[in-house]
């Protein structure tokens, strides 16, 4: 499953992350619900992470973006 994680903390100290997740689980779900799915998987981690930027995409959206 395509997935990108980038450590964007100053000095890459593992406290700020920019994440792109592509999953068929997102199909037909509103964006808020997609984000909630991810948040629930990372519940414990998010408590200690300082900043977390998330972008969720369905497989189709991912393919379309690659074409562009």
């Amino acid at each position: 499953m395509p997935q990108e994680v980038e450590d964007v903390s100053q000095g890459m100290c593992g406290t700020s992350f920019r994440v792109i997740i592509v999953s068929p689980h997102f199909e037909g779900k509103p964006r808020l619900q997609q984000h909630r799915l991810v948040n629930s998987c990372l519940e414990e981690e998010l408590k200690i992470i300082h900043a977390f930027q998330l972008k969720t995409m369905t497989l189709e959206q991912w393919k379309n973006q690659k074409i562009q």
């Binding site: 964006r31 808020l32 984000h35 930027q53």
Partner: peptide
């Protein structure tokens, strides 16, 4: 009603 955080608002 909760709309979202920064990422969601930006995408919207």
């Amino acid at each position: 009603e909760f709309v979202g955080g920064c990422d969601i608002l930006l995408q919207m």
